[in-house]
Structure formats: structure tokens, C-alpha cells
């Protein structure tokens, strides 16, 4: 088992107690980790978007190629995931900003707001899915 860097030097031969593998997932924990993941996904989405825009403006034919791609299942899936990710990241970002201002800081409110932002995932998935595919 790997030893933790901050442990006392004399304890280097001791095993480390299990952590992430055994800790029960909490909604607040999921909300925070998804915030990091969605942030990373938004960066990738932005890069794809910038590439698409630069591709479109290079000549008129590329515009039609891009429109065709956006209408394909891969393009629609990209839009769908982009939308869900942006909605979640924005919602939880707002939650974190409010917490920074001291709004919703009670133990109960912290848990409730985590649940609330997690609900934006299925809700935005259904709403955007309906809009894109129906």
C-alpha cells in the first residue's frame, strides 16, 4: 500500500487506511466532484467550438459540412452533452458563489442545494433531448 506523503517518517512501513475506495458517496461530494469534471468538459467543448468556428469561416463549403455534422448523431450528441454540462456547471457555480456570500450555509441547506443542482442533470438531459431529437 502506498504511504501518504504527510505521514510521520517513522510510520512509513505502516499501511494506509482505505479512503476513497470505502468512503460512502455523499450528494455534496458528488456535486463537488462533478463540478470539477464538468469544468474540464467545458474546456474541451470550448476548444471543439473554437475549432468549428475557425473551420466554418475558412470557406463557404465548410459551413455546409459543419451543419451536416451538427445534424448527425455525433454532432447532436455533442450539443446535448455540452448543454447538460454547461447547465450543471452554471447551477453549481451559482451555488458555490452564494455559499461564498454566506447564503445557504446551514448544514441542511448545503445538502438540499447539492440535491437541487444534481437534479439539473436529468432535467436538462430530458429538456435538451426533447428539443434536439423530437
Amino acid at each position: 500500500m502506498p504511504t501518504h506523503p504527510h505521514h510521520h517518517a517513522s510510520s512509513s512501513s505502516r499501511p494506509q487506511s482505505p479512503r476513497l475506495s470505502i468512503y460512502r458517496w455523499q450528494t455534496t461530494m458528488i456535486a463537488s466532484i462533478l463540478h470539477r469534471i464538468s469544468g474540464g468538459m467545458l474546456i474541451i467543448s470550448m476548444l471543439v467550438s473554437i475549432y468549428l468556428f475557425s473551420y466554418i469561416i475558412s470557406n463557404t463549403e465548410n459551413l455546409f459540412i459543419t451543419i451536416d455534422w451538427m445534424r448527425s448523431w455525433q454532432g447532436t450528441l455533442f450539443l446535448w452533452l455540452f448543454g447538460i454540462t454547461a447547465t450543471y456547471h452554471w447551477s453549481n457555480g451559482l451555488r458555490f458563489l452564494l455559499l461564498d456570500y454566506g447564503i445557504g450555509e446551514s448544514r441542511e441547506r448545503m445538502k438540499q442545494s447539492a440535491n437541487l443542482v444534481l437534479w439539473t442533470i436529468p432535467l436538462s438531459a430530458i429538456t435538451l433531448g426533447t428539443w434536439l431529437w423530437l
Binding site: T3, R14, Q16, S17, P18, I22, Y23
Partner: peptide, 9 residues
């Protein structure tokens, strides 16, 4: 289990 992420004595 012991408290997580700790060196077990």
C-alpha cells in the same frame, strides 16, 4: 475501519 487516509498503527 480506521479513520481513512491515515497511517495505521
Amino acid at each position: 475501519r480506521p479513520l481513512p487516509g491515515m497511517s495505521v498503527i
